[in-house]
Each structure stands twice: as C-alpha cells, then as structure tokens.
Design a protein around this nucleic acid. Structure first.
Length: 442
RNA sequence: GUGGCUGUAGCUCAGUUGGUUAGAGCGCCAGAUUGUGAUUCUGGAAGUCGGGGGUUCAAGUCCCCUCAGCCACCCCA
C-alpha cells in the first residue's frame, strides 16, 4: 500500500469552510450591490500577467512579494499582487472602446509572497472600485461616499475614514526644501500613530537628514489635532505660499464640505494629515479606513487619487481615483469582533423526513417553499425526529417544517421556529408566508 | 525576508525533576425516549503528542532541522 499524502495547505493560503464562506460571499454581494448602486461596472482580468506588466511601477518591494515563475512556454509570468496595476494595463488596452470616464469595480483574488499574520495572507481577496479619466473633485467625493456607504451596508457604524491629501504634504516639503525626500518623510509619518512623535523625529533626522527645525515643522504639521475644520485651518497655515499645498487645502475643503452635506458624520470622516500610504503613485486625496473597535488590524479599505495611472502602458494621460476593500482582512476583523453568524447552511428551512412513505409530499412541499425564494433542504433520511431537529439546529437553520401523516392528510404542516422553539400548524399553501413571518421576527 | 513566541482528541486546555496502556471539559455518535432540538442519565468513537532526525535503558517532556499559526520589523488589504 502506498503512503498517504498529508493533506495540507501552503503558508498564507487557506481553505474556507461553509461557516466562513457564507459570510464571505455575503460580503462580496454587499460590495457588489453598493458599487453597482453608484454606477460602477464589473470587470475581470487574468490572475497571471507578463511580469514586465506587473513589475512596472511597484519597485523592489512588490518585486520581492510577487509569485513569479516561467511558464511552460518559457514566458516570464507573475500572479497579480493587486488589482490596480492590472487595471492600468486594462484601461491602456481598452480605453478606446470603454470611453471615459470609466467606472469599474473588480472583486478578485490577489497574491503576495510576504510573511503572514492575522488578517495578512498570501492569497486574499480585494474589492476595488475606481473612476478613471477625470480630475474632478466630484470623483474624490463620490469615492468617499462609496466607502462610507459600503461599511454601513456591511453592518458597521463604528469606523472612521481617514482622509488626507498628498498635495498638502508635498506643499509643506516644498516649503521646507525637502521635496526630494518626500518618500522617506511619508514613510516616517505613516508610523506616527504606531511609534509616536519622538521616534518619528529620530527617523526623520536619520533617514532624511532633516534639521531640527525641519523635523519640528513636519511633526507640528502631522500632529495637528481638533475638529476637521480646525485641522484644515492649521494645514492652510503650514502650507501657505506653496501653490500645490494650497490646491490640496482647497481639495480637502471641498471634500469635507460635500461629505458633510451628504450626511457623513464628522466622527466617520477624519482629516488625518499623518496618513501617507507607502505607495508612491498617489498624488492627491488618500484614504485609509479603520475599525474603531479593532484598530490594530490596520486599514481595511484604502485608496487614493493618482494623476497618471497607466503612464507605463500608454501615452494617453489617465487620471483616476479609487479604493480597495480588503475583504479577507475585514472578515478576520469581523470574526474577532464576533460579528459573524455561525450558520453552516445558506438555506433557511429544513423539511424533516418524518414519515418514510411521504417523501413525495416532502419534495413537493420543498418545491413550493423554494418557488417563493426561500432556501430549503429536505433531510435525506427518515431518521428520528429529534436527530433531524438537532441537525437543523446545529447547522443554523431558522425553521423546521414537520409533517407526519396526521398533518399531511389534513393538508397541513407544522412550521417550527428553531430559535424560540414555538410552532404553528398552517395549511400547506400558507407555509411560505409562515416561514417569512418567522424570518422577519428575528 | 529578519527576529521572537506557540503547536497535545473536532474545540479549549492539563500532563509534575524525561519513567509503565496520554487525561479532562465541551462537541460528536448511539441508547434511555418508535411525533419534536440547546436539560438529565448511560454507553461509545476519536490523539501520526505539527512533521523528521538526534541524545537516552526510557522523550509529549531535552537538542537540531523543518512545517504552520501568532507577534514585532518591513510593507500593506
């Protein structure tokens, strides 16, 4: 006899059991629904691309994280590590037929060969949406509103979209004559919340060679606090004189005003001048979204504006703005926050196989219920009723339909609410509406 | 990729200075209860002690390697 192969999965790659796949699919459906409601259209692209396509913008870091190999035809290929770079290639290739502005959403798996941690996997799903081909601040505003709507639709009320604008940072650095060090400064600032002002100060001095005055100015800027209005005022003062900086301030003002007018409460949209995003390609508005009750898991939805998305692939200048929901990270957070239902079945109702002679009646009953849009399963064996109810309860069914020959010969069926334990007996034709009553009750 | 912590039944964990057939609770299966699930009682199944190698008369316990998870750095969803 041959030796068994140990069943196992790769580091950072996971199986999804029904109990996690059900809420995962629900999240995707929610994201799709919200994106569509704002007019974003779905697209898809290949998981595998020519390495030169993906390598373009990222630099050494993404290079190291990519799953890259030679295919059997000798091509140098790699698996996509985000959905933005494939989008850039996609619009460069299809802008002609798509027309601009182009709004798309893309829900797909991406791969990064980095070290794993809670909420950080090597294979994970992103839910991106982007608006390509417009510089209008209206797109920035809409992006913010989509993120806000998305989290509400998922079921969160305690979250904060941190917003900033690269132009104000760049403006400040221009004034301080540190513009050429912007990436290093941004990296240091990004850590502010984590390591504190003193450490950031040290890092600024050591990596950028900033003088004490320069570092102090940057930190004073980054630690501006108060209401959004107060921070905007502080920022305006700090960048005064820099055309770019003043532009950024104006953008932030428009964004904040429009979102407030659209009903986004101040608590959920925070101007946070310390967020910077490591990625170089952002040029304007930038976002990071944090969960109030689990900030340690990091940003669960991030994005921003870029001036020229596809410059590597086309001469046509394509500005755009978008954001990415980290579905798997969010799911890990929801799991930890006990926000996920434990149901292991996607169906609401179970028809018990009570009387061995009545299978046809049960199948007919199930079809009737199903035709009303309710998920229903018929238990496959005429086992003891107690066991069938235990199965129904364990799997997370909400309703059990019980009918022995007594009920069936009277043309009736018992509809049992598995949460309360109560039940009512109704004519067969009324079973769907009785189930709906139970479902809407809780 | 670098460093640290962890790894015993499906789950949560116990396991004494290395010493006979590795335990508990919960869960699971069956019965008490041939028309009603989260109670009670009875019985039962289930463990390559993450994997491999080494030290030893003897390893779940010590050492090395490896795999995986978590934490920090890095970066990011």
């Amino acid at each position: 006899m041959s030796k068994l192969i140990e069943p196992r999965t790769l580091k950072g790659f996971r199986d999804f059991l029904p109990a996690t796949m059900i809420p995962r699919e629900r999240l995707m459906e929610t994201a799709r629904r919200v994106y569509r409601s704002f007019g974003f259209a779905p697209i898809d692209t290949p998981a595998l691309e020519y390495t030169e396509i993906l390598l373009g913008k990222g630099g050494a870091e993404t290079d190291k994280q990519m799953f890259r190999f030679e295919d059997s035809g000798g091509r140098d290929v790699a698996m996509r590590f985000d959905l933005t770079v494939p989008l850039a290639r996609f619009v460069a290739q299809h802008a002609g037929t798509l027309g601009l502005p182009f709004k798309r959403y893309h829900i797909a798996t991406v791969w990064r060969g980095e070290n794993t941690q809670r909420g950080r996997y090597r294979e994970f799903m992103q839910c991106d949406f982007d608006t390509i081909g417009t510089r209008s601040i209206a797109a920035d505003i809409e992006t913010t509103l989509v993120i806000h709507e998305l989290f509400l639709a998922i079921g969160f009320t305690d979250f904060a979209i941190h917003v900033n604008n690269r132009k104000v940072l760049t403006g400040l650095l221009e004034r301080l004559q540190l513009a050429d060090k912007s990436t290093l400064v941004l990296r240091a600032l990004d850590k502010l919340a984590k390591i504190g002002a003193a450490k950031v100060n040290e890092e600024l001095a050591s990596t950028t060679g900033a003088t004490t005055e320069q570092a102090a100015a940057i930190l004073e800027f980054a630690t501006l606090a108060g209401t959004n209005d107060e921070i905007v005022a502080g920022v305006a003062k700090a960048v005064a004189g820099s055309a770019l900086g003043e532009e950024g301030v104006a953008d932030l003002r428009s964004l904040l005003a429009a979102c407030a007018a659209a009903g986004v409460p101040d608590a959920r949209l925070k101007l946070d001048v310390s967020i910077a995003r490591g990625l170089d390609y952002y040029t304007g508005t930038i976002f990071e979204t944090f969960l109030t009750h689990l900030p340690s898991i990091g940003s669960v939805c991030s994005g921003g504006r870029y001036d020229n998305l596809a410059g590597l692939y086309t001469k046509q200048e394509l500005p755009g703005i978008g954001a990415s929901l980290g579905l798997d990270r969010l799911l890990a957070a929801m799991e930890e926050l006990a926000m996920l239902p434990k149901a292991a079945t996607p169906a609401e109702a179970l028809v018990t196989y009570f009387d061995a002679e009545r299978l046809h009646d049960y199948l007919r009953l199930a079809a009737l219920v199903r035709s009303d849009g309710i998920g229903v399963e018929v238990y496959p064996e005429p086992k003891k009723l107690g066991q069938q109810l235990k199965y129904a309860d364990g799997r997370g069914f909400r309703v059990a339909l019980i009918a022995g020959s007594n009920e069936l010969s009277a043309g009736e069926c018992q509809v049992k609410d598995l949460r309360t334990g109560g039940s009512e007996t109704v004519p067969l034709a009324d079973v769907p509406s009785a189930i709906k009553r139970v479902l809407s009750a809780g």
